[in-house]
Every structure is written in C-alpha cells, then in structure tokens.
Design a protein around this nucleic acid. Structure first.
Lengths: 108, 108
DNA sequence: CTTTCATTTCGATATTTATCGAAATGTTGG
DNA sequence: CCAACATTTCGATAAATATCGAAATGAAAG
C-alpha cells in the first residue's frame, strides 16, 4: 500500500459522519445499505451525506452498486485490512515484537 | 472508545507527515525516537514537525518523555489497537462474519 | 413518455488546517 | 551563571474542507 492511499483512507475516516457511515457499513456486511438509509440513520441531509460517501468511495473503503432505484454502499473489508496492515507494518522493527499490547496487531 | 476519540486519532493519522512519523514510531517500539531524529528522517522543519507531533500526542496515539535534552516520542500500541477495534466493531452484525476478507480483523 | 423517486452536483459561506521562519522556552554541561 | 542545544510557540498566509438548500441527473414504474 502506498502512503498516499493510506492518507486518503484515513482522511476519509477522519470525519464524524463518514466514520459513522463506514461503521454502519462494516456492520451491514455484504448486504450493504442504500444512501438514503444511511442518511436517515445518521440524521444528515442527503446532499451532505452524498458528499461524504463520495469520499469514502474515492478512497476505496466502500463501493457502490445499483439496486432498483437505490445506490447500495458496502464496506471493502480487504481495503480496511490493508490499511490496518500499513499502520502496523514492521512493528517494533519486526522479528518479534517486544510490546505486549501490540502482539494482537503486530504478529504475522 | 468514543466516536470523538476515534475521529481525533484518525485525523491525527490522516496527514502524510504525521502518518510517516507514526509509522516510524511503531517501528521504533518502546525505545522511541527524539523529535529531532524524526524531523531529520522525514526531512521536515522542526517547527512543522513539532506541530504534527503535538497532534499525535493530543490524540493519544503517541506519548512523550524527556531524556537528557531530547523529547522522546513513542507510539501507544494500546491506543492503536483500540482504534482498530472501533473500526471493526460488530463486523457484519457480529455472530459470525460472512465476509472472508474480514475474518482476520473481525473475529473475536 | 411522464411522473415519481433516490441520489448527486452546484454554489456560496464558514471553518479548519498546513506551512515554516523567527523568537521564546526550557534543559544540560561546563 | 552562561553557552549550546533541542524543541516548542507565535504569527501570518495559503490551501483544503464541511455545510446544506436548490436545482439537476438518472433510473424505474405505471
């Protein structure tokens, strides 16, 4: 993963409405949620949410598909995993992390 | 973890110099790095980096300690873990995630 | 093909953010 | 104490971002 991609993904998540939307989509799994459903769930105007969803999609953390009249958004779990891996890469210089709190993330 | 803390942490990471600094500290482990070392490694003026380190510290992702004349920064691995947990919380509605790519992150 | 519905784009404004040199702070060693 | 050093704070400027109503787009249903 390139640094720029990681910054884009983190920027996408670094905003309360977008973070809430993303978490909603993580919890929704493969089924996803329509843009309108998300807007309603978050109490954000459609036009504002559309702006935020576009950024999440641009970053690669979510994708869009059409279903009837609705646009369904889904989280990209692979992208999320890549981001986490990027953060923890070469943790503690690799070769056996000496930080107990890091083991869950830094191993393998 | 509160939504605001997560947004703060993600905002802290959502900037190229700060992300690079944080990754450096993750790799440095408990030993950490002095502010000046980080600035030099990244090729960023001290005053600019100081601004960025303050944000990382404010978010709780890094901490500061004094050693001689230097201020040594270290990554907080627990905070990083909490952030990742917050993102993946209740993945796929919980109770057995049906997304293969998510298993590594969503289990337990 | 026209109406209805879901969503996005536009536009204008307010807020936040990044940048870096110069000056200030605070610490150590002599 | 004074000099050297490491780092932060200040200040001013430039750039990016969030907001939301109104209008536009585009798909589907009758």
């Amino acid at each position: 993963m390139k640094a720029n991609q990681a910054v884009d993904a983190l920027s996408a998540l670094a905003q309360d409405h977008r973070l809430a939307a993303f978490r909603l989509l993580v919890q929704a799994g493969t089924e996803g949620m329509a843009a309108g459903q998300i807007a309603e769930a978050l109490g954000v105007p459609n036009s504002s949410l559309s702006f935020h969803l576009a950024q999440l999609a641009e970053s690669g953390l979510v994708h869009q598909r059409r279903e009837g009249r609705s646009l369904i958004y889904t989280a990209d779990f692979t992208a999320m995993g890549n981001l986490v891996d990027y953060l923890t890469e070469n943790c503690c210089g690799g070769a056996g992390c000496d930080v107990p709190a890091a083991e869950a993330l830094c191993e393998d």
